[in-house]
Amino acid sequence: MGRVLTNQGGGRRWWISVGLLGLLFVLLALVVPLAVVVQRSLDAGFDNFADALASASFIRSLGNTAVLAVGVTLCSAVIGYPYAYAMARSGRVVSRILLTALMLSFWTSLLVRSYAWQVILNDTGLVNEALQFLGVIDEPLQLIRTPAATLIGMTHILVPFTILAIFAQLRGISPDLAIAARGLGATRTRAFWSVTFPLSLPGLAAGSLLVFVLTLGYYVTPQLLGGAGNPVIGQSIVEQTNALLNTGVGSAMAVILLLIVVVILGVAARFLGLGRVLGLATERSDR
């Protein structure tokens, strides 16, 4: 009879009206602004889109963004997988250390981390000083304001998402499976590649997709580390709206970015489930 009270008839209508309160807030605070961006992008027919796509620097920024997103995703997978594996399958002490380090990094402000990489990669920064001290180089290397600097900083900022997604998946795989494979004569390496790794792929895929999509929208880190020479989409959009005060074309670029993100997530949702990519599913499987 409890179900009658909370979930049916008047009960359900009451909870729907509670939910509508939150819905109204998101509609007014976010959906209306997004609708205005779409409206502004179309205020001259499709001319704003034509202008955006005719701009060589915007097309270049699309290419830069794609290269950066692929790079960050690959680096995060290569660095994140062994980390997540060590975190999931090591003893208590090592696991604790790895988890603490991950959280320290994850909870450091994005702006502070971008600034830190600027300090580290500067002409007089940690890396150049160390290399000069060791006599590897005579003149400081140009590290800052290069695509490589953006790649390093972005990977550092986004790799925790890959790690957490793989870690959640690995924790759901019983270590007994690999032990069984070993018992049947497989080497440690063979047991990993033919048992554990294939089973962990959904986590790797979900984490990688999230990192890829998140990279597409970044602005601050590429601006601070990559400079204005090799702009990403975010920098093109801000330049149009803030420097050139052309909100029409800027909005068209923003709509293009939003469409790319929505299409990628839509395709991902078909294969992996959107909840898994956004980390909602891992939240649930944790308990």
Partner: peptide, 12 residues
């Protein structure tokens, strides 16, 4: 929603 996109909407 990418922050840059949201930012323009909020601003407008």
């Amino acid at each position: 929603v990418p922050l840059v996109v949201g930012a323009i909407g909020f601003y407008l």
